[in-house]
Design a protein around this nucleic acid. Structure first.
Length: 364
DNA sequence: GTCTGACTCACGTAAGGTAG
DNA sequence: CTACCTTACGTGAGTCAGAC
């Protein structure tokens, strides 16, 4: 709509919505959309709105600037510059982790952080106390902590943090043994196998009583096609509860397999699956003590973001297809033109030959 | 002191796309 | 037509800030 045909509030709402949608696109695509899909008037309107929003934000800022700067100074005094992290970036073990940490430091989430109480910084654990499947860290006071965890199909098992690496390793070995027994082929379902296998593995290593590893369980159900990642239930300490949640979520989601292309399923089928999964997931989180409204709101935000991305992907696919068909059409046209040209030349040659023959017959 | 939610990545898989 | 490439996915695991 051209500016002036609606109220300023409505214009503002509309422009905000455009702005939010555009933010979902990648920078190149965003530039492309703005330059090709927007009229000059629309571009100017968006620019004016963005400027006015920024002016309002800056106008509201002075009251909080001092506290922000105070917080930053206080933070540096207490803790050194948290963003000038240790080489490798805290627990990071390679460059990509540092890059992720740097990228995370630039996200808006950081900007909205409230003043937090001081917490000791974690650093990487010594090399001889690092092992796959065990998350280790050392706090500034010198204590090192270890947490063993494994995933069995959709179930994630996590032990309580311990300071003795050997204990963590023992717990991890027990979890791995239970995992192997749990997913063994030719036996009954995981729901039936795992509790016994876990109990046996812990008993064999004496991990009971005082040495109880304080296991917690959560279920992660694949939902990348709907929310861009897995849906995880809150952690519970009862394996039975987690297994029941796993069963319900798997039933609601339907079968899954690695490499499955959900993006190629029909919209109706996909949305029906999502509606089922959504309901069951909210119900499970509520039973675990979460606030149903908050869970539903989070899912809704994630789903909307994912929908926007899927629409964009579909558009890109359809653009690619259109371009391909156009190229094919042009190639066919060129082939037809060349063929017609050849036909014409052949006809001309035949005509010239016929005229020549006629001339020769007259002369002879 | 410990737990947890959320994010991220590596890797393997399946299906579509495409160059030769 | 086919081998190879690309894309989107599921799965398992690591990480860390914030909550309890």
């Amino acid at each position: 709509r051209e500016s002036g045909t609606t109220s300023p509030e409505m214009d503002g709402r509309l422009l905000r919505r455009f702005f939010e949608d555009l933010r979902l696109l990648r920078p190149e695509r965003r530039r492309e959309v703005i330059s090709t899909q927007f009229s000059q008037a629309q571009r100017l309107a968006l620019e004016r709105w963005l400027l006015s929003e920024r002016t309002q934000e800056q106008g509201a800022a002075p009251a909080s600037v001092a506290t922000l700067q105070q917080r930053r100074t206080a933070g540096r005094r207490r803790n050194g510059d948290r963003h000038a992290a240790t080489p490798g970036g805290g627990l990071s073990r390679c460059g990509r982790r540092a890059a992720v940490a740097a990228a995370a430091a630039m996200t808006p989430r950081r900007a909205t952080c409230r003043a937090k109480p001081f917490r000791p910084r974690r650093v990487a654990a010594p090399k001889d106390e690092v092992s796959a499947g065990i998350c280790s860290w050392r706090e500034s006071c010198g204590r090192t902590w270890h947490v063993a965890s494994v995933a069995v199909e959709n179930l994630r098992i996590r032990a309580g943090a311990v300071q003795d690496f050997r204990v963590a390793k023992e717990v991890f070995d027990a979890l791995q043994a239970a995992r192997r027994a749990g997913i063994a082929e030719g036996c009954e379902a995981l729901d039936v196998r795992l509790p016994g296998a876990l109990e046996e593995a812990l008993l064999q290593r004496g991990l009971t009583g005082d040495r109880d590893p304080r296991l917690r369980f959560c279920v992660a159900v694949p939902a990348r096609c709907w929310v861009g990642g897995q849906l995880r239930t809150p952690y519970v300490s009862a394996l039975g509860v987690a297994l029941a949640a796993r069963r319900r979520l798997r039933e609601a989601r339907g079968p899954s397999s690695a490499g499955e292309r959900r993006d190629l399923a029909t919209e109706e089928e996909s949305e029906a699956n999502w509606a089922r999964l959504n309901t069951v997931y909210i119900s499970i989180c509520t039973e675990a003590g979460a606030d149903a409204t908050a869970v539903a709101a989070r899912l809704s935000v994630l789903h909307e973001k994912r929908q926007a991305r899927r629409l964009e992907q579909r558009q890109e696919r359809s653009d690619r297809l259109a371009l391909k068909m156009q190229r094919q059409f042009q190639a066919d046209e060129a082939r037809r033109a060349r063929r017609a040209e050849r036909e014409l030349q052949r006809a001309e040659r035949a005509s010239r030959l016929a005229a020549q023959r006629e001339k020769w017959s007259i002369e002879s």
